[in-house]
């Protein structure tokens, strides 16, 4: 569990009087976007999501109560769901969770206006493209059998551990686990490279993510053009059937291009 509190910048400018409501910012979109009236965002109760515009760009925002911490499950899901639903329809530059400014006017004056041209250019770049994340995880028993099959030291450690009482084999068990972790990491490296190479013809970009689990086989974000999406999904299906029971493959998306926007 970690927590962080950001202090507002000490302003030389005249600041608005203190108030309990501030303005949560989800992401940046083209100006010609409309949001349905029942769209809700973070907070308890969730507040209505609205749009502020400047020139060719706009920001998705909602009121947020600054007295209460953010980060409950429904806050996180609301943030991503709103952006991902939007990203399925229009280009979106997603902000990291937890972006809060004083007022909608400040969003326009300090976020949209000064950075208008670079945001507008970035939106043009991602037009017609969305992100998918491929998460592949080795099934436990098959990968452990593979590892034992391929590595003599692992087999020997296992035999030794099985022959001795548990209380005297802690070092051997740690060594065995470490070895397995390393061997799986090597498999992950190879399988991740294979996945990136395999999808290269269907994707406009790939970002390899850190593993989120010790049995991860691949964790890669892909940027996919809308008209290649069917090809991409077909290729994922082929990978899934090739790997069979050895690896569980999940595909997340379409989602906003979180991994492809950089500050």
């Amino acid at each position: 569990m970690t927590g962080s509190t950001r202090q507002s910048g000490a302003g030389d400018q005249a600041e608005a009087p203190p108030r309990n409501t501030a303005c949560y910012v989800y992401g940046i979109l083209p100006e010609d976007v409309e949001i349905s009236e029942d769209a809700v965002g973070v907070g308890d109760p969730p507040r209505a999501v609205t749009i502020v515009r400047h020139g060719e760009i706009a920001a998705l925002i909602s009121d947020v109560d600054v007295d209460r911490p953010l980060g409950r499950a429904q806050d996180l899901v609301a943030h991503e769901q709103l952006l991902d639903e939007a990203a399925a329809e229009v280009p979106v530059l997603p902000l990291r969770f937890g972006a809060v400014m004083t007022t909608p006017e400040a969003v326009v004056e300090e976020l949209l206006a000064p950075h208008h041209d670079s945001f507008a250019a970035a939106l043009k770049q991602i037009e017609g493209r969305t992100q998918f994340v491929l998460k592949a995880r080795y099934a436990e028993q098959p990968v452990l059998v593979e590892v034992l099959t391929e590595n003599a030291e692992a087999r020997q450690l296992r035999e030794r551990i099985r022959q001795l009482p548990e209380e005297v084999t802690r070092n051997e068990r740690i060594r065995l686990g470490e070895l397995i972790t390393q061997l799986i990491a090597a498999k992950r490296e190879a399988d991740t490279q294979a996945v990136v190479g395999r999808f290269e013809p269907f994707t406009a970009g790939a970002v390899v993510r850190d593993p989120s689990h010790e049995r991860d086989a691949a964790h890669v974000a892909f940027l996919v053009e809308d008209d290649r999406q069917a090809d991409f999904e077909r290729a994922v299906g082929e990978l899934r059937s090739e790997w069979g029971d050895r690896v569980e493959v999940r595909l997340l998306g379409p989602m906003a291009p979180y991994d492809f926007v950089t500050t």
Partner: peptide
């Protein structure tokens, strides 16, 4: 995703996450 602190200084609001 984009980090708002990189773009905004004055009107950033600290909220506990």
């Amino acid at each position: 995703g984009l980090v708002i602190d990189a773009y905004v200084r004055v009107s950033l609001v600290g909220i506990e996450i």
